[in-house]
């Protein structure tokens, strides 16, 4: 099995195990203010890191290219409360256009 498949199936197992665990553990065990704050912050920290790496990284170097323009477009679309699909494909269109022109 390829490394990619191993990664896919391991992600499936891990994510499912977490879902089952949540429905199974006694509430008192996890209902701790610190645990709840960490849980709320994890997606924020990770998603922000993902945005930054996705937009600026090119292998192990940093570059500014059409992806930055696309992210700017996404910000504008989010500010005007565009739906998710409009934000994603709108940003893609801006990047495609910028590459066509550039």
């Amino acid at each position: 099995m390829s490394a990619l498949w191993v990664g896919v199936l391991a992600a499936a197992a891990g994510c499912y195990a977490l879902k089952v665990a949540g429905l199974s553990v006694p509430r008192a065990l996890v209902e701790h203010p610190v645990a709840e704050r960490v849980a709320a912050l994890i997606p924020v920290g990770l998603l922000a890191a993902l945005v930054a790496v996705q937009v600026l990284a090119d292998g192990r170097s940093l570059t500014v290219d059409a992806r930055v323009l696309a992210l700017g477009a996404a910000v504008v679309l989010l500010v005007v409360r565009a739906p998710f699909l409009v934000v994603v494909f709108g940003a893609a269109a801006v990047a495609a256009l910028a590459r066509l022109v550039g």
Binding site: L18, R27, A39
Partner: peptide, 25 residues
Amino acid sequence: APLAGTATAVLLGSRNAFYGVALSP
């Protein structure tokens, strides 16, 4: 590496465990 992708995915998925805790009652 795909397993780095797995680790990131599972970390992000940890919030679903907390959702489950809130939902189960």
